[in-house]
Design a protein around this nucleic acid. Structure first.
Lengths: 292, 292
DNA sequence: CGGGCCCGATACCGCGGCGGTATGACGCCA
DNA sequence: TGGCGTCATACCGCCGCGGTATCGGGCCCG
């Protein structure tokens, strides 16, 4: 092969995918370029090359920016998954060496949830003969699945139906009903049962809003909150009510009452891991969890 | 940003992953370089750069070639998955445009299996009001899951426990027992039941060997075969016996007999798709399949 | 209806990194 | 100890990336 000769050009590089995703998300080449820390023309050119290489129009150019074609929608969806997989490879390799040859596993869970379960799991697992180090990462609701996908974590405690476990293997750890938590003095607090519709429409007790994955909040009444302790404090102050799995009963202090809900979906706690995982640590944790 | 300034260097490019995987698979830099169609030194350098970037020793250099470290094992595993995801993005985008904006879906199944089921599925689905074009790709046993992973197919008919469905979403389509197919004149052909152990040890009727995914054959007695018709012909000739799901009864012609097996694992036919799929065609096919 | 504005696309340039060849360092074996 | 086979290093040439300057073309507004 002479120096001038190059490889066949139809393999997509991750750089190109990152550029494409940025442009797709911004719907604007200039803004995407700023976000990427580069000038606009090379980005335009890179997108053009990608389009020629794939033989696809990915964007329609409009006077206000760009919008995705249907092929572009496909590439955005698949490309994000591919980038997450590349990042996962990178991160898990870095972690493998950081552990200095000794195996390690990163477990992630919703902050403030399943506390007892986690404590017990970690205790029992640590007593196993072949246990490896477990790093626990607590993060906001909904962040566990992405972390599993991009390699920041190896195994997660998730809660169906709130978390999406598709694409992972998962074992069920338990199922529980949800209850409404409200201030103990409130007139509704003496009821023995309630529907979700009723719970949502208690006039002076709005259900708080939780942030979406991107950090924005859904529209509607009720306070905006990020944290379980915050919520419970607000409930105690008589400013809100909230639906929670019934384990919280154990953590409740004075000033809070609980009403069972007749029609709320049951919550399943699961332990989930990437289905291609080969980590002995993950396998051990899962085995331990199944015995709890 | 001045011209000389470059992006942060810690994102791994797919080219580097391909190089790494080639070296890991060959366990030899020179051979890998030949396979990649390039010279050995730049490949050595690329691997060195990747190692420095990840802060990991990926290979130990030996006088006979290279072998993977444990960090290298991790990267090989994760990197293959990442490369498959990138290829999937590329292929599905190309297919999206090849269809000229009209949606299409690629269905793959084992050649020669589930014929009736597939025919019925395609017929019923084609009658749906919002049906899209379905391209059927028949391929050797075990190739369906990789095709789903790297984007050559969008949905597959698989058979548990033979196929690994982990990482996919799947709906069960049916469960059936396995039977032993043997020449009709054979002494054992009059038995009403048999165990797998008995079936494997009929002296003059060895069970044929099927190729592994890489095309090699397991060790042992019995003929090497790739194709169901081949097998059945061989059975009819009195040279082999074979375990098959009992639907094959329908396809059997003269000269073949069937004995139920008491302890063979039941075979579950499933329809499977990548869990992040958003294709309307896949959804429609799955919905149709569930109603069969 | 023409001028300014805001898009993305094109033209052109400089340099860094990739891939090339030649050669070195080093363990193994005869 | 010389030869072989391995990977690493040294050095070079060119392509492609990213840079700046500019163009083409809708859109809005006076």
């Amino acid at each position: 092969m002479t120096p001038g000769e190059r490889r066949s050009l139809d393999d997509v590089e991750t750089r190109e995918l990152r550029y494409f995703v940025a442009v797709a998300e911004e719907a604007h080449v200039g803004r995407a370029a700023r976000r990427l820390g580069m000038a606009q023309p090379p980005l335009s050119r890179a997108i053009g090359q990608l389009e020629r290489r794939l033989g696809a129009e990915l964007f329609v150019r409009t006077p206000r920016g760009v919008t995705l074609t249907s092929a572009g929608e496909t590439l955005l969806h698949e490309g994000r998954a591919a980038l997450a997989a590349v990042e996962a490879a990178e991160r898990r390799t870095r972690r493998a060496v950081a552990a200095g040859g000794r195996a390690t596993v990163v477990l992630t869970a919703k902050a403030g949830a399943s506390g007892d379960l986690m404590a017990k799991l970690l205790d029992v697992y640590a007593a196993e003969p072949d246990a490896v180090d477990v790093e626990v990462v607590l993060s906001p609701p909904g962040h566990q699945a992405p972390m599993l996908r991009d390699g920041r974590a190896d195994v997660a405690i998730l809660h169906r139906p709130f978390d999406d476990t598709s694409g992972f293997d998962a074992d069920e750890l338990g199922v529980e009903d949800q209850v409404l938590v409200l201030p103990s003095g409130h007139p509704s607090s003496t009821r023995t049962s309630m529907t979700v519709a009723e719970a949502s429409s208690i006039p002076d007790l709005p259900l708080p809003r939780w942030p979406h994955l991107d950090g924005t909040y859904p529209d509607g009444p009720g306070p905006e909150l990020r944290d379980l302790t915050q919520v419970l404090q607000l409930v105690r102050l008589g400013r809100a009510a909230i639906l929670l799995p019934e384990v919280v009963r154990a953590d409740l202090r004075d000033g809070l009452a609980v009403v069972p809900l007749s029609d709320a979906p049951r919550v399943t706690t699961v332990i989930a891991w990437p289905s291609h995982s080969t980590s002995a640590g993950v396998a051990g944790l899962v085995r331990t969890a199944a015995r709890l």
